[in-house]
Structures are given as C-alpha cells and as structure tokens.
Design a protein around this nucleic acid. Structure first.
Lengths: 240, 240
DNA sequence: ACCTGAACACCGTTCAAGT
DNA sequence: ACCTGAACACCGTTCAAGT
C-alpha cells in the first residue's frame, strides 16, 4: 500500500474543462461516492455502480482515484471535516464532546470504520487532525505519558465499535427471542443473564450507549491518574 | 435472515456413508473453513476455494450450509467453544479473565468480528453461553440493573474492536511516518500529540492494550457502583 | 490530460439434473 | 439424501486505445 493522495487541487481537470471538454473532478467522484454511500448501503457502493451514476464506465474512476480503498479513505476524510473540537472546558467534557461529535459524523456511514481499521495510519489530514486533538485531550488528563496512547486506542476502539455495531445493538431482534426460547423449551439453555438484563423497555439508542461507555472509561482514567499520582508520591520519588 | 442451524447432528451424512458413498458432513465443511481461514486470510476464504480444498464444486457446500454467513457463524461458535469461564474469584478478575480468553480465541480469526456485528443476535449456543456469562459477571458488580446491558455492550465493543483492529495498532506503519513528515515539511500540519504520544519504544501488543482498556473500564464501573450506592443512600434520583 | 471498451480474474448463489 | 455442472448476476482492476 502506498500513500493515498489527499490534496484536492492536484487532480482537478480545469484545464480540460477550459478547453470545453466535458469532464469531472476528483471531488465529483468523492461526492458521488458519498451520496451513493448515504442513499444505498455499503454493499451497493461498487465502482461500477458509482461510475454509472456519473454516466461513465468504471475504468474512468481509476484516473481520479487509485482504488476503492483510497476513495473510501477520501470520503472518510471529508466526513470528519465537519468535526470541530470544543476549545473551552475541562479535558473530560471536551474529550467526551469531541468523541460524541465523531460518533454523530460517522454513524450514517458505518462502512468507513472498516477502512479506518484496514488503513493502519494512512489517513487523511482531517482524520489526523481529529486524532491529534483526541490524543491531546487524553494527555491533558494527567495520565502517565506511556498510558496516553493506550487510553486513546481504547477510546477510538469504542468509537469505531459503536459506529460499526449500529445494527447489533437495539432491543429488537434477538434479546427478546432468546428470552422466549428460554422460557418455552427445556432442551435449550436459558441464558438467564441475557434474559434478565436485556435492554429495558425504552428505546436504547447507540448514542446513549456510546456516551455511557465513554463516561465510564473517562472515570476509569481519572481514577488511574489519582492512583499514579499516589504511587509517585509514595514509592518512586521523581523530582518536579 | 432466518435462523442459523447449530445442531451438529441434524445434517450428518452417516446414512449415505453407511451405504458406502463418499460424502462429508457439515462438520467437515466447518473444519475445512476454519483451516482455510487460519492458513490464508479472510479474503482468501471463498466458497469456491473452500469447495476446492474439499474436492468439490461450490454448489455442494450449500447442501450443508445455508450461505457463507451461516458458515462463518458456525466457525465463530466453534471458536468460542474453547472459552471457559473461571468459577472462582471476585467478579472483576473473572470478568477480565473471561474477556482476555475471548480475545485470545478470536485474535487469530479477526474476520469473525464482522459476522458477529452483522448477526444481531442470531448467535450459536457457545457464543450465547459466553455472552450470558459476561452479562452475569457485569451484573455481579452491583451496577444498577438498567446499566448492566450498557456496560456489557461497552466491554464486548472493546473486545470486538481490539480483535478487529489487530492490523491498525502496532507502532510500525504510520505513527513514525507522521512524525517524520511533521518534522520535515512546514506545509504539512505537524500533529504534535500524535508525534509525542506515539506508542513507546517497546512492542505494544494488542493483548496489552486490550487488557489496559478493560481494566480502566472496570474501575469506571466500580466508581459508578459506589456513586449509585451513595445516591441511593441520599435518596436522590439518578445522575446523568 | 482525461476518457473509453473490452477483458481478466474473480465472487456468492441458484437450480435442474443426476445418483 | 446428497452431489454435480452450468449458469446468473455480480465484483475490482488493468490496459491498449482513443481524443
């Protein structure tokens, strides 16, 4: 995998357009891809169908975009452009708020999570901007330096997971089925805990669950900070 | 999506085998699929290639298995069969240990996470057994009943995420690249926090990061339990 | 510089037909 | 009851050729 190209000006076809030729830009491809991703699902976003909505063959797209992965990465970067990081407030509320904004931005396009996971660190500037801000906010907690990366990883894992899992979560499909099954048949194991603690009557939105998860994790960080401070004061003295 | 069929006896071809015909069982298909998944990657596990290793055409597989999704679900269930839940100890260490065992079991086959996420609650008995145990352990924490499901979701999200992300994590590909980039070019934003808190010199294994994440979350749960108890004692309603 | 058509090498799934 | 071959309806990507 070589690097994706994120500079939008590099590939515009103004020159051709000026000459009167009908053509479209790299941004056109990105935008068309985004729209297709939003209206249909992931599985409907193929290079061929995308080319179709633009009125060309799929081979044309490969002039503007190296491959499908790069296209999705570009869509991801465009998606994260809208995420702003709050400037005021304590680190914990800013961190939570930023993550919630990321969650909101990504939720309509869960397919992007797969790319994100595959992409190691081949990310666009907007993605890196948000990532950098998140790492910074985690660092503000006062966590030992060598734990900042781990906590950041955990938080974005929660973020990605709660985006990717938007279909698994709500109380509808199987929780209730498992309960019914357990009550009726004696041959089937009952799974009492699943039955008992199934999501309550109210509608459980992913947003609520995500917020809850991040809140618990952040209090976990706070406790760890206090712990580490106590350790430093007692055991291994480090001059300040 | 109708239910997957998890009963192994239903589909064995002993009768045919008894008659001297050469044939294979549903379990053969599952095992061959597992082996193919382990030796090659996900992308190499196609129904056609799988059939090939068994010496047939792909259409044969559809007698034993409804579709590829069901096959992967069966492989998942087989994978989780090995996960045992420790019987002794406090809830927190048993919970952590169980999650670590799940992580170890799933790590060689990250592809299964995708199925898990798509499968809502159409899961096999082994998967449900482990899920039920995890929910039970979370409940033992003393968390308010209506928060058990949320905490469980958060924990399995961490589990899934740290399995799925096995490629993204280590310090190799881009962290260091981003640092180099930030140092050289003035035109490129530097991402100072990413550069500063990149995974340290030591090898960061997924296992370590996962353990760290779960530990922080569990202490978050403990703090929430104390909080909720205090609230109840004071007669106050729930906090946000 | 940008677009095109045809081709390559794949997929998952179905289905009539065989034994 | 179990297997087969052929076919359907797709994929992503490449590449020589056009303008």
């Amino acid at each position: 995998m070589s690097r994706a190209e994120f500079e939008p000006e590099r590939r515009r076809s103004d020159s051709a357009r000026a000459k009167g030729r009908l053509t479209f830009t790299r941004m056109d491809v990105i935008r068309a891809g985004t729209r297709l991703l939003d209206t249909e699902g992931v599985e409907k976003l193929s290079m061929r169908k995308l080319a179709n909505t633009l009125g060309t063959g799929s081979s044309t797209l490969y002039w503007h975009v190296r491959d499908k992965d790069e296209l999705l990465l570009l869509i991801l970067d465009e998606t994260l452009r809208e995420v702003t990081v709050p400037a005021a407030g304590t680190w914990d509320v800013r961190l939570l708020e930023t993550l919630v904004r990321c969650h909101e931005a990504l939720l309509p396009r869960p397919a992007l999570v797969d790319v994100l996971w595959r992409a190691a660190w081949e990310l666009g500037p907007e993605t890196l901007r948000v990532a950098d801000a998140l790492v910074g906010l985690v660092a503000e907690s006062g966590l030992p330096d060598d734990e900042v990366g781990d906590s950041y990883m955990a938080l974005i894992t929660l973020l990605f997971g709660f985006v990717a899992g938007e279909r698994t979560s709500p109380g509808n499909p199987r929780y209730s089925e498992a309960r019914a099954e357990g009550e009726t048949a004696g041959s089937v194991p009952p799974y009492p805990n699943l039955m008992r603690y199934a999501p309550g009557a109210g509608v459980q939105t992913m947003a609520r669950q995500f917020r809850y998860a991040v809140e618990r994790f952040i209090t976990g960080i706070k406790l760890r900070v206090a712990e580490a401070e106590h350790e430093r004061a007692a055991g291994a003295p480090r001059s300040s």
